[in-house]
Design a protein around this nucleic acid. Structure first.
Lengths: 252, 252
DNA sequence: CGACATGTTGATGCGTCTCAAACGCAGTGG
DNA sequence: CCACTGCGTTTGAGACGCATCAACATGTCG
């Protein structure tokens, strides 16, 4: 990498938090982070297909147009640790230094736009607004990671799964007050690797939530949250990990 | 907050990573992040004294000149979760939005310089170099948090404590090849709250490491790492959590 | 010296992991 | 249409690791 701009980097961005934090300050109709991507027909990736791998030269930044991605690293013992899930509007591949530090795969079929890192950072540097948005978004991600750390360090299986469901509801823009169906495109293994549990434990918590009438399974990859308040209680209620948080998403 | 600059924010900065990542690009003798703080006699805080508390209006940014700090949140069940330790050269209090999201206390006696957020962000915005440094540093922190997430999600007590010792050695600039004394100013409770363990478990791991001749206790708050390779093996070896990482430090 | 905080060690219980088996759904082919 | 097959999921029994509770040791400060 030759320019100084390229060695300054970011990780990722969630559109929702970005709008929430910056919308009142910046004009988001122009000068938006998402305007950095060429207005072309998005590429599609099939479920399980990888966008890039840990260690690959970091050449592109991706914007998720539709679908869900998982970002993970392989630990020395061969296990997979998922550091986050990414949704429509999120950016991914803002790799740090010149290699990707994580791998990224499609969970379900996704559509993405891509820009070269060179182009992305050059354009971002041209606009103070975009620059600030990028910065704010990374800060948001950092806050979310802190919540995730607290969750993993101090919470039991029930709290983790309940918190995960609440996070999914929030990230997909659900109002918890009404009785929506919540789509969970990832497998139990994905959840387990994200929450630091085993498939079996995740599963047992699900059945417990079902027998307690907190949720109803409407399919293998979809549930209805019947009693959001009870779910929040399971999750540890007014924790930062639930109220503030993102709990996932950034990416290198 | 009235200006757009103030609502863009950052979390923290470690001097070491900052130098490592940016030193070859930026002139660090001038235009340094640390030059944003008034060249005045640093304030001192006594052990256990708080710099700011979760929820306080975020008025100042601090630079640690000497000593160690802990950053934490209180969970809904009353337990304390430490999200990181900060060392000389680190910045803290780059709060996001207008309230601190974490509390910060001195572990041992520390010396700090402070700048108002308004001044800090105004000066930072004036220099592209400083701006980029700030951004890169926050990205570094994000990477470190990811490592910490992987550690907490997938590692056992032995691995966590061993990893913690390696992190401490690295953060205090130790070359693991020679036989240095490692200072651990924090209590067992601090380590436990940081690693998601109990005091007793941390203690038992210490004694195991001692009986295995991996470390030697030279005092309550200092150990010698006798066999760094063995310690790295305990920690899970060439994990990202050890090689890449910071494992802590950022702060809101 | 005594009082208190911090650290260490031990006995026991709970929660999660591990191993194993059965189930259910989706896709395929007869 | 249904049997077959593969994979993800669910459920169970047992083992293991860490938390909990308790007692004691040690260091620190009056």
């Amino acid at each position: 990498m030759t320019t100084s701009v390229q060695s300054t980097t970011a990780y990722a961005v969630r559109r929702s938090s970005l709008m929430a934090s910056m919308g009142h300050v910046f004009d988001t109709t122009q000068d938006d982070l998402h305007s950095l991507f060429p207005a072309q027909i998005p590429e599609t990736f099939e479920p399980g297909q990888g966008l890039f791998w840990e260690g690959d030269p970091a050449e592109h930044v991706f914007e998720i147009v539709e679908g869900v991605m998982r970002v993970f690293r392989i630990l020395s013992d061969g296990r997979r640790g998922i550091t986050g899930f990414l949704f429509a509007g999120d950016l991914v591949g803002l790799a740090y230094r010149d290699k990707y530090l994580c791998s990224a795969e499609a969970v379900n079929r996704i559509r993405v736009r891509r820009a070269t890192r060179e182009r992305f950072h050059r354009l971002a540097a041209e606009s103070p607004n975009v620059n600030a948005q990028l910065f704010a978004a990374v800060c948001d991600e950092l806050s979310g990671m802190q919540d995730q750390v607290l969750l993993l360090a101090h919470k039991c299986a029930e709290e983790r799964v309940a918190g995960f469901l609440l996070m999914m509801a929030r990230r997909t823009g659900q109002s918890l007050t009404t009785r929506h169906e919540l789509n969970l495109p990832m497998t139990r293994l994905d959840m387990a690797d994200y929450l630091g549990l085993t498939i079996e434990t995740v599963c047992r918590v699900f059945t417990r939530l079902k027998t307690d009438r907190v949720i109803t399974a409407t399919g293998r990859h979809s549930v209805v949250i019947d009693r959001p308040a009870a779910l929040a209680r399971f999750a540890g209620q007014d924790d930062p990990a639930i109220s503030t948080a993102s709990s996932a998403s950034f990416v290198l």
